[in-house]
Amino acid sequence: MTEYKLVVVGAGGVGKSALTIQLIQNHFVDEYDPTIEDSYRKQVVIDGETCLLDILDTAGQEEYSAMRDQYMRTGEGFLCVFAINNTKSFEDIHHYREQIKRVKDSEDVPMVLVGNKCDLPSRTVDTKQAQDLARSYGIPFIETSAKTRQGVDDAFYTLVREIRKHKEKMSKDGKKKKKKSKTKCVIM
């Protein structure tokens, strides 16, 4: 069974824990209790493949930012979460993405942009803004509501699919490099 290491990042209060708990335990946590770091595991079937999701729910508070490099190193894919009623959390996505790329030393890291709290009427981040940002990053965008469960499975499952595509691409690139290195030079 394939294991996928997913990391949920975003500013404090955007609903990272609520999304994760909704996926794992099928219930909505409405009281806000700032996370330092929590880890969850769940076995699911995605596109006919049974897999184990190892999900790291991270601290959004700035005082825990020193811990970010460590979990970013171990993560295979990242859910970059903002709240649709919090423009600052949307603007912060850029910083999370840049930090992930720096730590992973790669421009090509599996990510999904997630606009959470889409059940709320007080939207300050337009869907088109988020779609445009995701398009500019070359990553999928999904709106979710941890409260109603809308888009929750889709967000995590899409990230797994992005990781699969990335692994497939990397193995193809690896095979191309191996083929090239088999060419021999004969000096007579």
Rank of each mutant, 00 (worst) to 15 (best):
E162M: 04
S145A: 07
A130G: 05
S136K: 14
I142L: 05
K172N: 15
A155W: 08
D126Y: 10
S145W: 06
V152F: 13
K172W: 14
V160D: 02
K184G: 14
Q129T: 08
T144Q: 15
F141V: 12
D154A: 10
E168A: 12
D132N: 10
R149H: 08
E162I: 03
V160E: 01
E162Q: 09
D154L: 10
K128S: 11
S136H: 11
K167Y: 10
K128L: 07
L133A: 05
R135S: 09
T127L: 09
E162R: 01
T127G: 08
T127R: 04
K177G: 06
Y137A: 07
H166Q: 10
E168L: 05
E168I: 08
Y157G: 14
I187G: 15
D126K: 07
S181G: 12
V160Y: 02
D153K: 13
G174T: 09
Q131N: 11
D173P: 13
R164A: 05
Q129D: 09
Y157A: 15
I139C: 10
Q131T: 04
T127W: 08
K177Y: 11
V152A: 08
R135V: 03
K176G: 10
R164L: 14
Q131R: 07
K172S: 14
D132G: 05
H166L: 09
A155S: 03
R161P: 00
E162D: 04
R164F: 13
E162T: 05
K176S: 15
L159H: 00
I139L: 10
V125W: 06
K128V: 07
L159A: 05
K178A: 09
Y157Q: 14
K177V: 05
I163C: 08
Q129E: 14
T158V: 04
K175M: 04
I187H: 14
K165C: 02
R135E: 06
M188A: 14
T158Q: 10
Q129L: 07
D126C: 10
S145G: 15
V160T: 02
G138A: 05
A146Y: 04
R135C: 09
K167W: 01
D154C: 07
T183S: 13
K169L: 11
A146L: 14
Y137F: 12
K167N: 09
L159S: 00
G138I: 00
A155K: 00
A146S: 12
V186G: 06
D132Q: 07
R135I: 04
D153M: 14
I139W: 00
E162H: 02
G151Y: 02
K167F: 03
Y137W: 14
K177L: 11
G174V: 09
K175V: 03
I139R: 01
T158E: 13
Y157F: 12
M170W: 12
R149K: 13
S136M: 13
K169D: 09
I142N: 03
G151V: 09
D153N: 11
K167T: 04
R135D: 15
S181L: 02
G174S: 13
K179S: 13
S136D: 14
D126P: 02
T158W: 08
D126W: 02
K128Q: 09
E162Y: 01
K167Q: 09
G151L: 11
A134G: 02
D154S: 09
V160W: 02
D126T: 06
D126F: 09
G138L: 00
A130W: 13
D132Y: 03
V152E: 07
A155E: 00
D126M: 06
V160L: 05
F141R: 00
S181V: 07
